[in-house]
Design a binder for these strands. Structure first.
Length: 363
DNA sequence: AATACGGGGCA
DNA sequence: TGCCCAGTATT
């Protein structure tokens, strides 16, 4: 149903121009818009993946303060990078960020790749980020295609393909590639279409009455703003049940790093037993042999604390059992667990669920 | 071609 | 609640 774009070919030539003019008047003043340093552009783009500007901005400031250059980040420990990233989610972004910083510093002499194709080879840089860095830092004429772009193009051109499919991604990428050809400035155009999606052509209640593309917009003219873009519904979230055993001795807590290919990889937590059922009493759980002695001699400080953490694809219900281990008891901790003081724990990267527990139980 | 991967904000 | 966010890597 793209009769409009076919029957109204005048949309395409003026499209980029209209957005670039709109952008000049409406753009927000954001820190990464004052630089063409590829390191800063790259950093901002990784942070902004699947992340709103208002949420990502403070992280950008903190990262830049901690690591002013790519070699500063390369010298850091991954743990510290993850600690700075804490609370932003999608932690593979932080691990890849650090890995790429090291690669650029040691293998590329600190010089970022300067083309879309070379940028694409870096860990954590996909088609969107490669296009963003290539255009913003180096002026390459390659189109960004992000959630904003899907929305704007789907509406203006009346594209009803399901944007989660590979076929649709090609449709949008092809159209975006065509549209950027008539842009005055590729960097400005890319910024403009995303800013337009974020401010004007919003997911809910787009501001069509004041839209410069109103009379050329298929969605507006057919009253389908709410229907576009088309996106398949996500599968329902998975429920998971975690029981945490929080061993405490001398104001220290036993924690370890998550290493599994799972949520929160490389972040720190307590001894975890996962079960298929919710609220399984401690006595009925299958606990590691190595924890038996600690539990035998330990004293629960009270009933378990129950917390819930909602992820976009999982709902984690967690029960925390705090066990006070006597000073004199010197039995070894289960595999991977180590005692950490409160100060040390503060420096460890932790899932928000764990931070919430610490906040709640210890203040 | 699907699915996994966070956390926050908004109606 | 459900949806969305300057997506990418893995299966």
């Amino acid at each position: 149903m793209d009769w409009l774009s076919d029957s109204n070919p005048s949309v395409k030539p003026g499209f980029a121009y209209t957005l670039e003019r709109w952008y000049e008047h409406h753009k927000r003043d954001l820190p990464w818009r004052h630089t063409t340093d590829p390191y800063r552009i790259w950093l901002s783009e990784i942070i902004l993946q699947q992340t709103r500007v208002v949420q990502g901005r403070p992280y950008y400031e903190r990262f830049l303060a901690a690591y002013p250059t790519v070699s500063d980040m390369a010298r850091a420990d991954e743990r510290d990078v993850l600690r700075l990233w804490q609370g932003l989610g999608y932690y593979s972004r932080a691990r890849n960020l650090h890995q790429t910083a090291r690669y650029v510093t040691t293998q590329l002499n600190g010089k970022f790749p300067e083309t879309y194709d070379d940028l694409l080879k870096m860990k954590g840089i996909g088609s969107y980020t490669a296009a963003a860095v290539a255009s913003f830092a180096f002026g390459e004429r390659v189109p960004v295609v992000d959630g904003n772009v899907y929305r704007v193009l789907a509406r203006v051109f009346g594209i009803t393909e399901d944007i989660t499919t590979t076929k649709a991604k090609k449709t949008f990428a092809g159209l975006a590639a065509e549209l950027i050809q008539s842009a005055d400035n590729p960097a400005t155009y890319n910024q403009a279409i995303m800013e337009f999606g974020a401010i004007q052509c919003t997911p809910v209640a787009p501001d069509c009455l004041l839209c410069p593309l109103q009379q050329q917009c298929n969605a507006y003219l057919t009253g389908r703003q709410q229907l576009l873009p088309v996106k398949r519904k996500k599968a329902p979230v998975r429920e998971r049940y975690f029981t945490y055993i929080v061993f405490r001795q001398d104001e220290k807590l036993a924690m370890r790093e998550r290493t599994a290919q799972d949520i929160w990889q490389n972040l720190y937590e307590f001894l975890l037993i996962e079960d298929e059922e919710p609220a399984v009493p401690l006595a009925r759980l299958v606990l590691p042999e190595s924890a038996a002695e600690l539990l035998q001699n330990g004293v629960p400080t009270g009933p378990p604390v129950e917390l819930m953490q909602l992820l976009s694809h999982q709902r984690v219900r967690a029960w925390f059992y705090e066990i006070e281990v006597p000073d004199h008891l010197n039995s070894p901790l289960p595999t991977g667990l180590q005692w950490y003081s409160a100060a040390e724990i503060g420096g460890l990267p932790k899932p928000v669920l764990i931070t919430n527990y610490l906040q709640r139980s210890l203040g």
